[in-house]
């Protein structure tokens, strides 16, 4: 199945793109998507302990399952205001 990965702020800069399409196994979780990204782009890995994640524009956990067509977002620590 295929998911859309969204990356923001410095994660986007590190990846060189804010939106990526990735094929993942059927039983994938957010964590599965993240780990395959960090294999591809090891520089992202440093964010694992501080980032937040979202599925289809709702905050989620790394253990959340993802489905075909989902949008999975990885969010560095926020700095609004």
């Amino acid at each position: 199945m295929r998911v859309t990965v969204r990356l923001f702020a410095r994660l986007r800069d590190l990846a060189g793109a804010g939106e990526l399409l990735r094929d993942v196994p059927d039983a994938a979780t957010v964590g599965t998507v993240w780990r395959s990204l960090t294999v591809e782009m090891p520089a992202l890995a440093a964010y694992e302990s501080t980032m937040s994640v979202a599925v289809n524009a709702e905050y989620a956990r790394m253990t959340a399952s993802v489905h075909d067509g989902d949008e999975v977002a990885f969010l560095p620590p926020v700095s609004g205001g």
Binding site: A9, D13, T50, M51, Y59, P77, V78, S79
Partner: peptide, 11 residues
């Protein structure tokens, strides 16, 4: 530079 503050977790 990107500024980074809090790890967002509404819960």
């Amino acid at each position: 530079t990107w500024l980074e503050g809090a790890t967002a977790d509404p819960d």
